[in-house]
């Protein structure tokens, strides 16, 4: 099934799904509204329209403005919990009344274009844990960390509220140590800084525990609203996410620029231009995809370098070893022993 992909200028975010919450939080902390909205195409009178929209460039600008005018590092964390409690976001209502975490995560994943179209999740299963890796579907620039924090705050608040504690849940962040310490204070679970990816690890038994406020009728009603909302907010994916998925599916074959453009129904030049808008290029994306795939494969099981090279489409294992050294600074064998060491 094909979906259109979006860029920074496509108005696919609802003002009511985050923007207004952010503005009220920032205003209560003393930032004037006109300064928060400066440089965005949002007008004050549109803020209360039920289906008012904004695009990602504006959303990123808003996040930037709120950081510029306020020294309040707690904002993304509060925004995450404010979104979860917002009665007008039917997706959050669905999630709050879901049966268990597993169902809640499935709904969030399915309807994620309502709330966080710019973030996509990759699932990896480890023997004891479900691992959700968060990637950005379009370039978020310096706001990447805030966006990830908002999503993680929403999820961790949900877990804390519905299951009472965050035991068996841990977070790995790409952020530096200071941010991680801050996050740990807000989330109350283990947070490890300077990791290769932003990911949430949930112990498998946790997924099936029943939620405190599980309510089948309310959940179904909210789901119905979500489906209705789909009519005005159709499913759309970010360009980087589309490319990521196409390439991952094709591995060990590597799709060329032309093949990807054909699959996306755009011309090669358009694709190049759109990638340039995201401040990246095709080769970089391909490299990132192989890097993630290599790391995930190594985390999942014991593969020889030769097997990995074949799976990732390298002509021989030496090329793979060289690439791996470039990504991580380590040889694959060292990385493996690091993973298996008891400290992790």
């Amino acid at each position: 099934m094909k979906h259109a992909h979006f860029g920074h200028q496509d108005k696919i975010l609802l003002l009511q799904h985050g923007c207004t919450d952010l503005l009220t939080l920032a205003q209560r902390r003393g930032a004037p509204l006109h300064k928060l909205l400066a440089g965005t195409g949002i007008f004050e009178q549109d803020l209360h329209k039920p289906h008012g929209r904004l695009h990602h460039a504006d959303w990123l600008k808003l996040l930037h403005n709120s950081q510029q005018h306020l020294n309040s590092p707690e904002l993304p964390f509060l925004l995450g919990s404010a979104l979860l409690q917002n009665r007008y976001i039917s997706l959050c209502q669905t999630v709050l009344h879901a049966e268990n975490l597993s169902q809640a995560l499935r709904q969030l994943y399915y309807f994620r274009h309502h709330l966080f179209p710019s973030i996509y999740v990759q699932l990896c299963s480890q023997p004891q844990h479900l691992v959700l890796e968060f990637h950005s579907g379009i370039a978020l620039g310096p706001q990447n960390n805030s966006c990830i924090s908002i999503v993680l705050s929403l999820l961790l608040n949900l877990i804390k509220q519905q299951l009472g504690n965050t035991e068996g849940v841990s977070v790995q962040l790409q952020h530096d140590t200071a941010t991680a310490v801050q996050s740990q204070l807000h989330w109350g679970c283990e947070v490890v800084a300077n990791q290769a990816s932003n990911s949430l690890h949930i112990a498998l038994p946790k997924l099936q525990l029943p939620f405190h406020t599980a309510d089948k009728a309310k959940c179904t009603a909210a789901l119905r609203t979500c489906r209705q909302l789909n009519r005005i907010l159709p499913r759309q994916r970010g360009l980087l996410e589309r490319i990521y998925r196409l390439q991952r599916r094709a591995l060990p074959q590597l799709l060329s620029l032309e093949q990807v453009a054909q699959q996306l129904d755009i011309s090669v030049n358009t694709l190049k231009r759109q990638l340039k808008q995201q401040k990246t290029n095709f080769a970089q994306q391909l490299d990132a995809i192989r890097r993630d795939a290599a790391r995930q494969l190594l985390q999942q099981g014991h593969y020889s370098n030769r097997q990995l090279a074949i799976r990732l489409g390298y002509s021989d294992e030496h090329n793979f070893r060289r690439a791996f050294k470039r990504w991580t600074g380590l040889l694959p064998s060292n990385f493996k022993s690091l993973l298996n060491s008891p400290s992790l």
Binding site: T24, L25, R28, L78, S81, A82, Q85, N157, K160, Q161
Partner: peptide
């Protein structure tokens, strides 16, 4: 967090 949830973040602030 419970207080925030029950009465809203505005009341918490």
């Amino acid at each position: 967090a419970d207080f925030n949830r029950q009465y809203g973040i505005a009341a918490g602030d």
